[in-house]
Write a protein that binds this DNA or RNA. Structure first.
Length: 484
RNA sequence: GGCCCGUUGGUCAAGCGGUCAAGACGCGACCCUCUCACGGUCGAAUCAAGGGUUCGACUCCCUUACGGGUCACCA
């Protein structure tokens, strides 16, 4: 029978959501959900020194926004709690002692100083020093005596003396290492807290995690994890190691080096769905040429075999393109709801029809933050030079522009109904009368109305939105500039 | 340095012994057009190198190079 797949996202509350972590969460979610499994959230907050106020909320918010709903977690409970690691601290010592009893781990009373000197004496050009197992051969009596005397201790995992350890990673395949390479790593620290590696194994086992999904930086320590599972007599999980998300060929994405977090991208006007869609494709491919996916669609077609082995560089340009795709293909009402705040902010007090402007904008936007810059001219005609009137393709220059504007002015002044259609009819009729090209009339009008080299919408649309009075005023300004 | 992993256009990538080596972003050109954009058409651009194995290698094996990871009482 098939065991239900359980994956977990185990972030540290750092106060922001790293893109690489979000992608890991996404894959964990998809691996579980594509097989009808469960996605669990476990907060790893044991690093008390780096604790940030409100940091767990960032995690909850991100999962909620992206739709990566967890089935169990600190905020919603579950059968395998607690889901906050700091609340699990009492349970690890017993497991460590169990291993000692089984002969798979041992007490170590070595001082940090001794360990330090060990490294130095070993430093013959190499920075590598395994623990020398000084305490491995202590007799039970000696150990007990030291414990009774209150000598500080750690508990170390006893690695096999010889042979090799092999494990299979879903992405990287079969990996074998010499056991001689493995250090007797510390399981319980002198402060009686578990090390990360140990806590992870115990937690994952207790939470019945079937697929451990994590960054490839853990590939090297996986043999130790596996040995730990074996030592306990537990069944090891399926390992899925993920290649890193890079900033460039040499560096991982990192907040500290100025790379953007999920929140940063949202603040810069990127859409949640586009971000999720984009990062899904950073290291995974569906095998066909589809690129636009909703989360639901990803759940349906996600397959572990599409995961890549090599790191991928985060390309903001492609994200930006994809963001534009989402904007263009969105229902207008939904788009308007997103754009409205930005429009209101930029055009406050103008009384302009924001919906009409939004319609013009929807197909030309890459991010929501482009809005203010694109619509500013509606509020106030910018200062501009008459060189804007010269456009080679439109076959215009100052002279033509001036005469076109002069011709357009009375026509528009005489317009009773002011809407896109009436403006269109009037101007096109004028083009016919004058026997000029469309652009020779429309380009100057558009330029006069916007004062910009480019604008969302052409002459007729801008005139309609600006209204008769303001449009005429701007055309007069244009004439004035050209007459100088 | 030891060990582990990786390497298809600038970027994301498909490929899983036989393809003119998909597709997308970006870039360039053209078309459409009242600007920009959208849309459409086309184009430049890739198998890290060298050995094998094979009738045949991007695909399998080895070596080299170059990257990355890891070697904590940090997570």
């Amino acid at each position: 029978m098939n065991m239900e797949i359980r994956t977990r996202f185990a972030p540290s509350p750092t106060g922001y959501m790293h893109i690489g972590n979000l992608r890991t969460a996404l894959y964990e979610y998809l691996i579980a959900k594509s097989q009808g499994g469960k996605f669990i959230l476990r907060i790893e907050d044991t690093d008390q020194e780096r604790l940030v106020e409100g940091a767990t909320d960032v995690i909850y918010n991100t999962l909620r926004m992206t739709g990566l709903h967890h089935d169990e977690g600190p905020d919603i409970g579950g059968d395998y709690g607690p889901y906050i690691q700091s609340e699990r601290m009492g349970m690890y010592m017993d497991y460590a002692k169990e291993l000692v009893e089984k002969g798979q781990a041992y007490y170590c009373f070595c001082t940090k100083e001794r360990l330090e000197s060990l490294k130095e004496s070993n430093a013959e050009g190499a920075a590598f020093a395994k623990y020398d197992r000084h305490c491995l051969h202590l007799s039970p009596e000696e150990v007990q005596a030291k414990l009774d005397a209150g000598v500080p201790y750690v508990i170390r995992q006893k690695m096999p003396d010889s042979g090799t350890t092999t494990f299979t990673d879903v992405v990287y395949g079969e990996i074998t290492v010499d056991n001689a390479e493995l250090d007797d790593q510390i399981l319980m620290k002198a402060d009686s807290f578990p090390t990360y590696n140990f806590a992870n194994v115990v937690d994952d086992h207790l939470m019945c995690i079937t697929h451990v999904v994590r960054g490839s930086e853990y590939l090297s320590s996986t043999p130790k994890y596996n040995l730990l599972y074996e030592a306990f007599g537990w069944e090891p999980p399926v390992y899925v190691h993920l290649p890193a998300v890079m900033r460039d060929a040499h560096h991982k994405l990192s907040k500290r080096h100025g790379d953007k977090s999920f929140e940063d991208l949202i603040n810069e006007g990127y859409l949640v769905d586009a971000i999720v869609n984009y990062i899904a494709l950073l290291g995974w491919s569906p095998g066909d040429t589809r690129e636009i996916f909703t989360l639901k669609e990803l759940e349906e077609c996600f397959d572990i075999s599409g995961l890549s082995k090599s790191p991928s560089i985060f390309d903001i340009k492609k994200l930006t393109w994809m963001n534009g795709e989402y904007m263009k293909n969105m229902d207008f009402e939904k788009f308007y709801a997103l754009a409205e705040p930005k429009l209101t902010e930029a055009l406050d007090g103008t009384g302009l029809d924001l919906k009409k402007i939004a319609e013009l904008l929807q197909k030309r936007l890459e991010t929501l933050n482009d809005i203010p810059g694109l619509v500013a001219f509606f509020k106030e005609l910018p200062e501009y030079g008459t060189e804007l009137y010269t456009h080679k393709k439109m076959k215009t220059n100052d002279e033509i522009a001036l005469s076109s504007l002069k011709a357009a002015l009375p026509v528009l002044e005489g317009l009773e109904d002011w809407n896109t259609q009436s403006i269109h009819d009037a101007l096109m009729a004028l083009v016919g009368e004058l026997g000029i090209k469309n652009g020779q009339l429309l380009w100057p009008v558009r330029t006069a109305l916007s004062g910009e080299p480019t604008s969302p919408g052409g002459a007729m649309e801008l005139a309609d939105i600006l209204g008769k009075e303001e449009s005429l005023r701007r055309i007069r300004v244009g004439i004035e500039k050209l007459e100088k």
